[in-house]
Design a binder for these strands. Structure first.
Length: 799
RNA sequence: GGGCGCGUAGCUCAGCGGGAGAGCGCCCGCUUCACACGCGGGAGGUCGCUGGUUCGAUCCCAGCCGCGCCCACCA
C-alpha cells in the first residue's frame, strides 16, 4: 500500500466489479423488503452538471445505506426524451449544415433525432457510473422506448375516458422559432428595455379621446375594446361609449373589467384578445371577437392588411407614424420590464390563440392535495412542502400538446367531420360516424406528460409485471426545487390516478449549486462546473463527500475546499488503515477491548453510527459528512490510533484484533459516502465474507457506561496541556495516569483557573432560582453535567 | 410583484436561548518508523443594523439594510 491514496484506478475497478458481480441488481424474486428510487431521468442529450451530481450522490448514499441494512434496493436509471430540448439541439445541428427541419420533413427528421441519440446520447450513464452510483444499469429505460410509449398512450386514453381531456382554442405561449406552444414553465422571463407609448383613441361620436399605454403598438390593429376598472371614477361615464382604434379606424366599445389595473399607465387598457393572455380572458368574459394580426412566424399576418409581412417593429413604427400625423401620439418613454422568452432558444414569446389539447386539473389534483395535506407524502425540507401544496392547488389546466415533431404523437384521430377518436392504437373507424378516412393528430405530448409515469412505467406498467408488484410504490424521489411543479406533483397525481397508490413517501429537494461568486451555474454563462473534471482531479469519493458537505442550505456556493476535504479524508483513512494492517498480520478482527481507550473508541463509533443513521434518515447529508470527518480525524486517528500504536508494534493480540474490528465498523459507516476507498481497504482485511457494499450495516452495540465520557474528559485536559504524546510512554498509561503525568508539564495554573471560573459560573447559574425554575429541564440538567465534569477534571488535575 | 432562503473569523460554512465553532488560508514549531493530502501550537470575530420578549439573545419576535434562488400576464 502506497502512503498516498490514489483513487484513479481503484474507483474504476470497483465500479466495474460491483456491476459485473451483479451487486447493483434488483431482483423481483427477492422477497426482502424493498427500497426504491426511480431516479430523475436526465435529458438524453444532456451532460451531468453539479445539480445532477448532487441529486445522484445523495440518492446513492441512501441506497447504499439501505442495501447494507439488507433491503432489496432498486435504483432505477434512465433517460428522458426531453421533447423540445432535444429537438432544438438536433435542429441546431441541422442548421449548422445549412438545412432546416422543414426541408428534411417530419418522418426523416424524427429518424435523424434517433440517429443523433444513438451517437450523442447515452453518455450520462457513464458519468453516473463514474460517480459510483449503484444503479441497476441493466434496467436502463427511456421515456420513448417501446414499452414506455404504450404507457403514455394508456395514460392519455385513461384521462380521456375520465373526461378530463379537451381540445380548445385558447391563448398559449407561442415560440416562433419552434412553431409550437409552450407551457408557462418552459419560459424564461428576461428584463428588457422597451418603449411605452401613449396613444389617443378618439371617441367615435364626438370630441375627446381615451389615452392608452402599450409597448406593442403593432397589436393595435387587433384591438377589440378599451377596458377600464369598474370602480375607476375617471372613466365611469365612458363605459358603453365607442372609440376609434387608430390606423384601422374601427369602432370598439369601452368596457369595464376588474382585471384592469387602475394604477398602471392611464388606467385604460386596450383589449387585444388574440395577442395577450389577460386580454384574452377579458375578451372571453365579454364575448368579444378574437382577431389576430401576428402569425405563427411572429410576423404580421394577412389580417394585418397593408402591413402584412412586416416585422412587429416595422408595423409598430408605421402605426405610430400614422398616429403622430394625426396628433394621436401623446408620449413615448423608455420602459424596462420583463418579457417572456423561450427557455430553449430565447425567442420572444408571442401569446397566440391556437387549438390545443388540455388536461383539466380540478378532479385530478384532489387526491394528490389530500395526500400532501395529510403528510402521506412529504417534501423535505418542510418549506418546500408548503410550496408544493400551494402550487398544486393553483395549477391551471395543463396544456399537454406541443407542435413539435420529437415526442409522443397524441393518440387522437379525426374524421372529415372533425369527430374525435381516441385509442391506444390506430382505430379502424371514427367512433361517432364510422368514417374510415381518419387522420392522426400531428401534435406531440408535453415531455412531462410521459415523465409523470416514471415510477411505474419503468417497472412495466401498463402490464401487470413482477417488477411492478415488487417495486411499486417506491420510497423517495430527489430533485431540484424548480422541478416540483413540472414533475414531482405530476408524478404524485399520476401515481394516485393510475396506480391507486402514491409513488413514494418522501421528496427530497436538494440545494441549488451556485458558482463561487454566488451566481447560478449556467452553461451559457460559462459558470458551470463539470463534475467529471472534479472526479478526475480529486476522485469520485472526494467529490461525493464534498457534495454531501455542501448540501446543507437551499442555495449553496460551490466550494472546491469541500471536495479537497474529502480527498484528505480518503487519504487519512487509507493511511490509518495501513498502520493497522501493517501491524496486525495473522490476526482476526474481534472486539476485545481491555483498556479504556479501546472501550472508548468502540463507544465513540457506536455514537457516530447513531448520528449517521439519524441524519441519513432525516436527509441531513451535510451532518453525516461532518460527523464522519470528525470521527476519523479527531477521534480515530489523532487519538485512538496514537494511543494504541505501541501495543500494535508490540504485537499485543487483543489490541490488534480490536483495532481491526474498530476499523471494520468505521469502513461500514463511511461506505455510503465514500464507497470506493472503503471497499478497497475492506478487501485487505483478513477473512472477508463479502464485499463491503453488501456487508451488514453495524447493529446497535452497548458500550461500557461512562467510557466515552471518561476518556473525553481526559482527552480535553490532555489536549489543552500542549504536551505531545511520547510514544514510549503511552504504552504504560491508562488515562487517569496520563493526566497525572501531564500535569507537571501542562500549563496547570491556567487550566486550574479556567476550570475554577467555569465551576463558579455553573454554580452561580444553578444557584439562581430563576434559572432553575424557568429554564427547560434539559438545559438545567446540562449545566449540572457540565459542573460535574469540570469538578472531575479539576480533581484529576489536582491528582 | 409573490414565495423561500441567506447575512457568524480573510474564504466556504456549522451552531439556533445559558462557555463564540469547523475546514481552508495565515503565523510559529516539527524530515516522530500510517499519513507533509501529515502532526502540535497560535493569531484572527461589536455572530448585518435597530428595537422588543427574557434573569439571560448569535439563537425567539418585529422592523429596517444587503444578497440569492424560485415563481409571476401590470398592458
Amino acid at each position: 500500500m502506497e502512503p498516498l491514496y490514489r483513487p484513479e484506478g481503484v474507483e474504476q475497478r470497483w465500479q466495474d466489479t460491483w456491476e459485473a458481480e451483479g451487486l447493483y441488481a434488483a431482483d423481483a424474486d427477492d422477497d426482502r423488503p424493498t427500497y426504491v428510487d426511480a431516479h430523475p431521468p436526465p435529458n438524453v442529450t444532456g451532460a451531468a452538471h453539479m445539480g445532477t451530481a448532487m441529486g445522484l450522490t445523495l440518492a446513492d448514499a441512501l441506497v447504499r445505506w439501505k442495501r447494507m441494512q439488507g433491503y432489496n434496493c432498486l435504483f432505477q436509471p434512465g433517460y428522458d426524451h426531453a421533447g423540445i430540448s432535444t429537438q432544438y439541439q438536433v435542429e441546431r445541428a441541422l442548421e449548422a449544415e445549412g438545412r432546416s427541419r422543414q426541408e428534411v420533413g417530419r418522418e426523416a427528421f424524427v429518424e435523424l433525432v434517433w440517429d443523433w441519440l444513438r451517437r450523442y446520447g447515452q453518455t450520462i450513464m457513464g458519468q453516473f457510473r463514474r460517480l459510483g452510483a449503484s444503479m441497476d444499469y441493466s434496467r436502463e429505460r427511456m421515456t420513448m422506448d417501446e414499452g414506455y410509449t404504450r404507457a403514455v398512450m394508456r395514460h392519455f386514453v385513461h384521462l380521456w375516458e375520465r373526461g378530463w381531456l379537451y381540445r380548445d382554442n385558447r391563448i398559449a405561449n407561442w415560440c416562433p422559432y419552434h412553431r409550437s406552444s409552450l407551457s408557462d414553465l418552459e419560459l424564461d422571463h428576461v428584463e428588457t428595455d422597451d418603449e411605452l407609448v401613449s396613444v389617443r383613441y378618439p371617441f367615435a361620436d364626438g370630441d375627446g379621446h381615451v389615452t392608452i399605454a402599450t409597448v406593442r403598438p403593432a397589436t393595435i390593429l387587433a384591438d377589440v375594446a378599451v377596458a377600464v376598472h369598474p370602480d375607476d371614477e375617471r372613466y365611469r361615464e365612458l363605459v358603453g361609449r365607442e372609440v376609434l382604434v387608430p390606423f384601422v379606424e374601427r369602432s370598439v366599445p369601452v368596457i369595464a373589467d376588474e382585471r384592469v389595473e387602475p394604477e398602471f399607465g392611464t388606467g385604460a387598457l386596450k383589449v387585444t384578445p388574440g395577442h395577450d393572455p389577460t386580454d384574452f380572458e377579458i375578451g372571453r368574459a365579454h364575448g368579444l371577437p378574437e382577431p389576430m394580426v401576428i402569425g405563427p412566424d411572429g410576423l404580421m399576418s394577412e389580417e394585418a392588411g397593408e402591413l402584412a409581412g412586416l416585422t412587429q417593429e416595422e408595423a409598430g413604427a408605421r402605426v405610430l407614424a400614422w398616429c403622430e400625423e394625426r396628433g394621436l401620439l401623446e408620449s413615448r418613454e423608455p420602459y424596462r420590464h420583463t418579457i417572456a422568452r423561450c427557455a430553449r432558444c430565447h425567442s420572444r414569446i408571442e401569446p397566440l390563440i391556437s387549438l390545443q389539447w388540455w388536461c383539466r386539473m380540478d378532479e385530478l389534483r384532489q387526491p394528490a392535495l389530500a395526500a400532501l395535506r395529510e403528510g402521506r407524502v412529504r417534501y423535505h425540507p418542510e418549506s418546500q412542502h408548503r410550496f408544493a401544496i400551494d402550487s398544486l392547488e393553483h395549477a391551471p389546466d395543463w396544456n399537454i400538446s406541443r407542435q413539435i415533431w420529437w415526442g409522443h404523437q397524441l393518440p387522437v384521430w379525426y374524421c372529415p367531420d372533425e369527430h374525435i377518436t381516441v385509442a391506444e392504437s390506430e382505430p379502424e373507424a371514427c367512433v361517432e360516424c364510422g368514417s374510415k378516412a381518419l387522420r392522426r393528430e400531428q401534435d406531440v405530448l408535453d415531455t412531462w406528460f410521459s415523465s409523470a409515469l416514471w415510477p411505474f412505467a419503468t417497472l412495466g406498467w401498463p402490464d401487470d409485471t413482477p417488477d411492478l408488484r415488487r417495486f411499486y410504490p417506491g420510497d423517495f424521489n430527489i430533485t431540484a426545487r424548480d422541478i416540483i411543479r413540472l414533475w414531482e406533483n405530476r408524478m404524485i397525481f399520476a401515481g394516485l390516478e393510475l396506480m391507486g397508490e402514491l409513488p413514494f413517501r418522501d421528496v427530497i429537494i436538494y440545494s441549488i449549486v451556485l458558482d463561487p461568486k454566488g451566481r447560478r451555474m449556467s452553461r451559457t454563462l460559462g459558470t458551470g462546473i463539470d463534475p467529471l473534471e472534479l472526479i478526475d482531479e480529486h476522485g469520485a469519493d472526494a467529490t461525493r463527500y464534498g457534495v454531501l458537505k455542501m448540501s446543507s442550505a437551499q442555495d449553496v456556493r460551490f466550494s472546491v475546499g469541500a471536495i479537497e476535504e474529502g480527498r484528505r479524508l480518503a487519504n487519512k483513512l487509507w493511511n490509518v488503515a495501513r498502520l493497522i494492517l501493517m501491524n496486525t498480520e495473522g490476526v482476526e478482527p474481534a472486539a476485545r477491548p481491555r483498556d479504556l481507550e479501546e472501550r472508548w473508541i468502540l463507544a465513540r463509533i457506536e455514537s457516530a453510527r447513531v448520528e449517521v443513521e439519524a441524519n441519513l434518515g432525516s436527509f441531513q447529508f451535510a451532518r453525516v459528512a461532518n460527523a464522519l470527518y470528525h470521527l476519523i480525524f479527531d477521534d480515530f486517528c489523532d487519538w485512538y490510533a496514537e494511543a494504541i500504536k505501541p501495543r500494535l508494534y508490540a504485537k499485543d493480540e487483543a489490541a490488534q484484533a480490536t483495532a481491526l474490528a474498530a476499523l471494520e465498523r468505521l469502513l461500514k459507516l463511511l461506505h455510503p459516502a465514500m464507497p470506493h476507498v472503503t471497499e478497497e481497504i475492506w478487501t485487505q482485511l483478513p477473512a472477508r465474507q463479502s464485499r463491503l457494499i453488501v456487508a451488514p450495516w453495524p447493529a446497535p452495540e452497548a458500550g461500557e457506561p461512562g467510557d466515552l465520557q471518561r476518556v473525553q474528559d481526559a482527552a480535553a485536559i490532555y489536549r489543552r496541556s500542549g504536551v505531545r504524546i511520547r510514544l514510549d510512554d503511552v504504552e504504560q498509561r491508562i488515562f487517569d495516569a496520563v493526566v497525572r503525568e501531564q500535569r507537571d508539564a501542562a500549563d496547570l495554573e491556567g487550566e486550574v483557573a479556567r476550570l475554577q471560573s467555569e465551576i463558579a459560573r455553573a454554580e452561580r447559574m444553578l444557584g439562581d432560582e430563576r434559572f432553575v425554575q424557568n429554564a427547560p429541564e434539559d438545559v438545567v440538567e446540562g449545566e449540572r453535567e457540565k459542573l460535574a465534569r469540570y469538578r472531575r477534571e479539576l480533581d484529576a488535575l489536582a491528582g
